[in-house]
Design a protein around this nucleic acid. Sequence first.
DNA 1: CGCATTAATTATCTTTTGTTAACCGCCTGG
DNA 2: CCAGGCGGTTAACAAAAGATAATTAATGCG
Lengths: 197, 197
Amino acid sequence: MLDSEKIEFYLGLFKGIDSEDLLKVIQGTQQRVLAPGEIYIREGENSQRLAYIKEGLIRCYHVNDKGDEITVLLRWEEQIIASYDSILLHKPSRFTYHALEPTTVLEVNYDEMERLLENKPVFEKARYHFVLDMLAQSLERIESFVLQTPEERYLQLIKDKPDLLQRISDKHVATLLGITPVSLSRIRKRIISRQPH
Amino acid sequence: MLDSEKIEFYLGLFKGIDSEDLLKVIQGTQQRVLAPGEIYIREGENSQRLAYIKEGLIRCYHVNDKGDEITVLLRWEEQIIASYDSILLHKPSRFTYHALEPTTVLEVNYDEMERLLENKPVFEKARYHFVLDMLAQSLERIESFVLQTPEERYLQLIKDKPDLLQRISDKHVATLLGITPVSLSRIRKRIISRQPH
DNA sequence: CGCATTAATTATCTTTTGTTAACCGCCTGG
DNA sequence: CCAGGCGGTTAACAAAAGATAATTAATGCG
């Protein structure tokens, strides 16, 4: 990535940032490219990496007692990804984060970034809005679990994020919805059988 | 509430706030007492009320097609409550918020407060941490839906918040867990029947 | 090209949940 | 004191989901 691209990116993110701060942030930013399947944050790691996804798709999953991988979270381009165990709770990550596609991220060290931009209103505002955005998404997902059946959740996902569905396998969709792949297959069959002809 | 109490509260919340700002915030703050069952925010309302719960318990619920009330969120003392539809999404609330116990809140108008404290690092930091805290709680709840069975979620709740369970009826617990009261009753029976003797 | 791996579907059976309704105990207001 | 309402449990049945395994389809790799 050219520096001019980075400048543009940060100018959009931190509107009104002063040039000295901008320089320091850019110096702390690394671009990284992940191959499909490549692990970004490993379970047990205490990663302070905070990344903006320029392109691609990252999956956060947990491996249960039986060895099944359960998808906890998906994040894609124009979103922020980080080990929320490490950033929010200062604990080692209970999850593994890996790329599902060729993925390009801009990454910074969260602690470093925070120290660097402490008491900078521009930064405080930006990170507040990122967290607010993620909170809104999280609450929406909680609602879907409380108010909807698995089938309704799936239909909602088709409606809201048809593009995303094209990019991930059904088994990952299933665990994201809180059900098994077998069950999702039955739901799909049920939906099709209800359609006229 | 005495003003000295408010001063103490805000000094804790906004460490380092200057006295002029403090005064303005205190002037915009109202204490309000809710009786059990009293509605705080009504469905359809576009409420900019942001409240700190001093004492008591507020339930956010949704009424589905069949007229059943589904508990979406519970908030209690030392937490912030607001219509997140209105504050985060600038939409009328899809939910009703009401007190389950005699409840005392300190309330401010979110927009007013934001205007008043714009570009005050102390405020930006405080609200960031409130949102961060709520995000952490939300992510934990999402995990519980994705990784655990209803029974496991209930056992976890017993373990993590035994005090809270004492304060709410089982039917509210059930819908909070994403199941019906009938199903929770069976889960309870199952758990008891598994205990030695 | 064929072999091996993986995803998705299907089948079978078990377990759990939803739905509806009946029942019981408790509390409250007339 | 009694009637009605409500919360919680139980029962009976239907619907859905979990577990396991077999089958098919698609994919990739030597």
